[in-house]
């Protein structure tokens, strides 16, 4: 099945795109392989499945969207329906990957379906990223690492500053430019 056909087939679930590929590649390259890894907001399950296929890591994927967790499970990924990291134990993960909804969206134009939840980051693009940065530290092991995809449309510097407020130092480990945005994968460490 082509990517386009999958998109038409699963209108309620965000299907893999350039941002998914960039994050999957960056995470796979940098994981040693013995880790326990969480992918938050897995959507189709593409990133989690690639990490599971290309490394020896144990991968768990979560999403708010019931259609997404069902699709991700068919990819062979162990899935949990969850709000960000709320049902995971303290220190449970060596790595957490997240391709968040990041598009800044005028509240007048929000369209209120599952695809909006997958794409819209609210007025400033950070409606989901900021609560994630506030809560992710709890579920990370002491030397745990976060791989977070950020777009220039959201503003990388602001996200780096917010991460710093929660005790993380950020390094850009991958980026790719497109006509309307530059995508960056941040590696966050404490």
């Amino acid at each position: 099945m082509t990517l386009e056909e999958r998109r038409d087939d699963q209108p309620d679930v965000y299907q893999p795109a350039e941002d998914s590929q960039l994050l999957a590649e960056a995470a796979c390259e940098r994981l040693a392989g013995s880790e326990t890894v969480l992918e938050v907001g897995t959507g189709s399950g593409y990133i989690a499945a690639r990490i599971a296929d290309e490394t020896a890591a144990r991968v768990v994927a979560s999403d708010l969207n019931p259609h997404a967790v069902r699709q991700a499970r068919t990819e062979g990924v162990e899935t949990v329906r969850a709000d960000l990291v709320s049902p995971f134990r303290d220190g449970a993960f060596d790595a957490v990957a997240f391709n968040p909804p990041y598009l800044p969206t005028d509240p007048e134009n929000e369209w209120d379906d599952w695809m909006e939840h997958a794409l819209s980051g609210g007025e400033d693009g950070r409606a989901v990223i900021d609560p994630f940065l506030e809560s992710v530290g709890r579920v990370l092991a002491p030397d745990g690492v976060v791989y977070l995809l950020v777009s220039s449309l959201t503003g990388v510097d602001g996200v780096v500053e917010e991460a710093g407020d929660h005790g993380f130092s950020a390094v850009a480990v991958a980026d790719e430019s497109f006509p309307f945005e530059t995508l960056t994968v941040l590696e966050l460490l404490r």
Partner: peptide, 22 residues
């Protein structure tokens, strides 16, 4: 109690459990 539905645990807080978005 958090239900396991078709092999997938639904660990959303009870007030977020509905199928519809928002």
């Amino acid at each position: 109690a958090y239900p396991i539905e078709d092999g997938i645990p639904n660990l959303l807080p009870p007030d977020m459990r509905e199928e519809t978005p928002a």
